[in-house]
């Protein structure tokens, strides 16, 4: 069974389309890496971009800080700066994130409670643990994590986001302790910061150099710590739903939010993480049910997926 799975995974590597991928074991990922070592990225055909123009930026240029030396993609930063003020508008551009939030937090809660041996029936299971939310945006993820007891550091390269996040967190005494920094993962590594858990949700697809980014995440994680990453699969179905439907038909997301070519397939992500000394332990997919307007966790990782891995002990 395992070998059969492995074979089918290998076949799908070259053509990242609809497929299922359930809880890869560390053994599997290890073999996998050695077999496909020379090709970390797929060169599958890409659908033509619908709109190649970068989105316009309102007002002054938010990218004053040109010195950001990191894996970041500058155009991506400009996109988010333009809509930063709407982070906490549950009906605004970030609505999909708000709707998806409880689902991804449920995954984080269950995996990290298990990882750190915490009681999932406790209201604040993450008390005493240091988490970093990389690409925190307006703090949509940082705030719930803080309410769950974690000592949270939220970082984002867009200064506007950090301001919004700070202002919003101060509104609630339960979240005002969050440390927000306008910086990058690479800078934090330079500062030699370490965290029990590193989370980068819906961020890696906006990053220029995936491998560098994952190495930074790994460097921020303590030995035997946890890493959680979520992103969008580079599948035709993801192209159809995340870009065509979400950006062009439903207008859920501003056009140009996502660049299909920068999406990663689960296999690629597992591989990149493996090279950064993070072993993927669990993977799940998010599926949106338009009838009830809710996201749920499934083993279908065809579109949106979330990965939990552990940092190998050095």
């Amino acid at each position: 069974m395992a070998s059969k799975l492995l074979l089918s995974r290998l076949r799908t590597l070259a053509k990242p389309t609809h497929h299922r991928f359930i809880n890869p074991t560390p053994i599997f990922t290890l073999k996998y890496q050695t077999l496909v070592h020379s090709r970390p990225y797929s060169d599958a055909p890409q659908p033509p971009p619908i709109d190649s123009k970068p989105p316009s930026i309102n007002g002054d240029n938010p990218l004053k800080n040109k010195k950001i030396s990191s894996s970041l993609n500058q155009t991506e930063l400009a996109k988010f700066s333009a809509i930063a003020e709407t982070w906490w508008d549950a009906e605004g551009p970030f609505k999909p994130l708000h709707v998806m939030n409880p689902t991804r937090l449920a995954f984080i809660r269950s995996t990290l409670c298990r990882h750190f041996g915490k009681d999932p029936n406790c209201a604040k299971p993450f008390e005493g643990l240091k988490f970093v939310d990389v690409g925190c945006g307006g703090g949509i993820l940082s705030e719930p994590l803080a309410r769950m007891g974690a000592t949270v550091t939220g970082i984002d390269a867009v200064e506007k986001n950090i301001k919004i996040a700070q202002l919003h967190a101060d509104l609630d005494p339960g979240t005002s302790s969050i440390e927000y920094l306008c910086t990058t993962a690479e800078k934090l590594v330079e500062d030699q910061r370490k965290f029990d858990a590193v989370l980068a949700l819906e961020v890696i697809e906006h990053v220029a150099d995936h491998a560098e980014f994952c190495k930074s995440l790994s460097a921020l994680t303590v030995s035997n710590g946890a890493t959680v990453i979520s992103t969008i699969n580079r599948s035709m179905r993801a192209y159809a739903t995340a870009i065509v439907v979400a950006e062009y038909i439903l207008n859920w997301l501003p056009r140009g939010t996502h660049q299909w070519s920068s999406f990663l397939t689960p296999e690629e992500l597992v591989l990149i993480l493996q090279r950064a000394s993070i072993s993927v332990q669990e993977m799940a997919g998010f599926v949106y049910n338009p009838l009830i307007g809710k996201w749920s966790l499934f083993d279908d990782i065809g579109v949106n997926f979330i990965v939990y891995g552990t940092k190998d002990s050095e």
């Binding site: 549950a90 939030n101 409880p102 449920a106 999932p120 719930p144 803080a146 309410r147 609630d172």
Partner: peptide, 15 residues
């Protein structure tokens, strides 16, 4: 309780 489990603000309309 569901809201608390995922760290939601319990006064949030969506919850």
């Amino acid at each position: 309780a569901e809201g608390v489990s995922v760290g939601s603000d319990i006064g949030e309309v969506s919850l």
